[in-house]
């Protein structure tokens, strides 16, 4: 009983800290001296680091989904629906969420660890003391880079998932590639693509923001680098799942009514 108020205060304090950090991020986007080079470098790093992992995951996603659903749909004589079923489920839901979760593990943790070690080794303090703006240089660039790169990575994964689906259909019987894709996309409309892509933008924000927040605010001592990396993955994953639930609700209200 006596513990509960302190736990709540801690949570509220942490939430408040995050709001302040978010405020600092938004304020610093529009400051003069935007770090274009660093933004490009970070985007490159994020894209390059996750490119193969995300690509392979996407391909296998489509491949496995097709293999799994083909026999079932065949029993109903509906195997021609396989391409569109894969397209809808991957592009609308599975693709964005799985890729975002993978990137939470890959990108959030590496941002958390990098900024955490910069904090511990006093590099962030050194930037601040020199009169430079570490939020602008380190935080703004990393968050914006993941906002840009996560949607692009997801689109790439979606495309490869379709390719994987095509490859899987080709195992049992020969399928014409044009026919496959025209079937796949016949079921998809803008109503599917816009909410799907817009939620990946929020996922990208969550991945970059949580990584930066955990790293930038890590404690002194080397063990806190590991803590920052680890808790970045945990919270970023949680954010993604919650954001996805919200996005699904919003889409069903706005897009399908």
């Amino acid at each position: 009983m006596t513990d509960s108020p302190t736990i709540w205060t801690k949570h509220f304090a942490a939430a408040g800290d995050q709001m302040i950090f978010m405020g600092a991020f938004f304020r610093n986007i529009f400051r003069s001296g935007f770090e274009w080079n660093e933004l490009i470098r970070q985007s490159y790093i994020i894209g390059y680091k996750s490119f193969s992992l995300v690509g392979i995951t996407g391909f296998i996603l489509g491949f496995v989904l097709t293999l799994q659903s083909e026999p079932t749909l065949k029993a109903f004589g509906a195997e021609s629906f396989v391409p569109s079923m894969v397209a809808i489920s991957v592009i609308r839901e599975i693709g964005p969420v799985i890729i975002a979760l993978i990137c939470a593990g890959k990108i959030s943790s590496s941002i958390g660890a990098e900024l955490g070690s910069m904090k511990v080794s006093e590099q962030i303090d050194a930037m601040e003391v020199s009169g430079a703006n570490p939020v602008q240089y380190l935080v703004v660039t990393r968050i914006l880079a993941s906002i840009i790169m996560i949607p692009l990575l997801t689109l790439m994964a979606d495309a490869l998932a379709m390719l994987g689906g095509f490859a899987a259909s080709n195992i049992s019987n020969e399928v014409n590639i044009q026919l496959y894709f025209s079937k796949a996309f016949s079921a998809l409309g803008f109503a599917d693509l816009i909410p799907a892509v817009s939620k990946t933008i929020f996922f990208g924000f969550a991945i970059g923001f949580v990584g930066c927040y955990k790293g930038y605010n890590s404690d002194r001592g080397t063990e806190s680098v590991g803590v920052a990396a680890n808790s970045a993955v945990v919270s970023a994953s949680l954010w993604i799942i919650v954001l996805d639930a919200i996005a699904v609700q919003l889409t069903s209200v706005f897009a399908y009514n």
């Binding site: 910069m118 080794s121 006093e122 590099q123 303090d125 050194a126 930037m127 020199s130």
Partner: peptide, 26 residues
């Protein structure tokens, strides 16, 4: 000016970029 006990060099930058950082940014 503040010299850190740990030197606090920016790990991701070369020596030249470390010295350039305050000149161009500040």
């Amino acid at each position: 000016g503040f010299l850190f006990q740990s030197a606090a060099l920016y790990d991701s930058m070369s020596v030249e970029q470390n010295l350039e950082f305050p000149l161009t940014r500040v």
